[in-house]
Design a protein around this nucleic acid. Structure first.
Lengths: 179, 179
DNA sequence: TTGAGCATGTAACACGTTACATGATTTC
DNA sequence: GAAATCATGTAACGTGTTACATGCTCAA
């Protein structure tokens, strides 16, 4: 149920935000680690409200609803962070495909891996651009956001290096075919 | 629709396998990059058969059904590998939580990051054990499986290093509090 | 006054998880 | 003959995606 906690967490950190505000945060930064659609966000806000973890604190123009966490909501966020274990990542389509590269010509396989290296490089650049576009001040979400961003950069760099290494491996193999 | 292609790909690479055999492969290795449950696998086999991408080649004892890919199935796998782009990973609960570490005491945050480092270390060890337990011969899925396994090891090592770096960052900050 | 952006919500469908349900074969 | 393992399938429920649907407000 991570979407629930992503939404709850944002409302704890950004009190007075609306579904629309949340959506912008998902698009800009949080969505890199936990994607969410508009439907999901509004649906989860309704459920969290029904469960008493958040509440509408004011209603603005255009039907805007601003939310804040209740004490029960803050407890639930703390419980999630300190008493439960995160589920390890178990789906990566880019790596899944590697298992099946043996079914296509070796050139197609290296094409694929080079494309993956380029995609990782673009991902890295996007994160650097994001880093420069936000004027972080230390402490609060900004401080931890910076740590998450560093993770993203290391992730992209690792993927690029791995894909380049894999291309080299395949080239070595084709130069000296199996005994 | 990656599950579909994971199942199809396995049937191309391991002709004559059954749903039960596939399930063992998911548990042992493929599941690290694309998790699937028993229900999903049997359901997908039925759909792939209905769509003419695979077919039952023989029926064994205990109702065992062995599958092989049809030409249409092999085409579809190739099309997926060469003409579509993999969807980037966009859900990582372990990193999502980092965004909200500002809501708990700094000690809880370092506890969390240290636990993440330890989990990555265990993950790395598991992959090394897996590598040693399989007697790979070069070429075919084994060759590419080795490349995927190398990715897993680099991923786990990167995560451990990042989490350790993050703990150090937080300690530096607490030693010299913000100006 | 018109268009961009703010703002929310619902419905249909696809995908994933858990639990249930059943039975055949092999091994001890 | 009991237990382990092989082997398949379904039902209920939860989560996620896409598309539709609507309307307000502000600035140019």
């Amino acid at each position: 149920m991570s979407l629930r906690h992503a939404v709850l967490g944002l409302i704890v950190e950004v009190p007075g935000c609306s579904g629309y505000d949340l959506l912008k945060i998902f698009d800009l930064s949080l969505g890199h680690v936990w994607a969410a659609t508009q439907s999901q966000v509004y649906g989860e806000l309704a459920k969290l409200t029904a469960d008493g973890l958040i509440e509408v604190t004011s209603e603005g123009p255009r039907g805007r609803k601003e939310y804040a966490a209740t004490p029960a909501g803050r407890d639930e966020l703390r419980r999630w962070l300190t008493e439960t274990e995160p589920k390890p990542v178990s789906r990566d389509e880019g790596i899944l495909r590697v298992f099946f590269l043996g079914t296509v010509a070796a050139e197609r396989a290296t094409d694929y891996l080079r494309a993956q290296a380029a995609a990782a490089d673009r991902g890295h650049e996007e994160l650097v651009a994001l880093e420069n576009s936000l004027d972080w001040h230390r402490g609060g979400m900004a401080g931890y956001g910076h740590i998450a961003l560093e993770y993203g950069k290391r992730f992209m760099a690792m993927r690029r290096e791995w894909a380049e290494w894999a291309v080299e491996q395949l080239q070595e193999r084709s130069e000296q075919p199996p005994a």
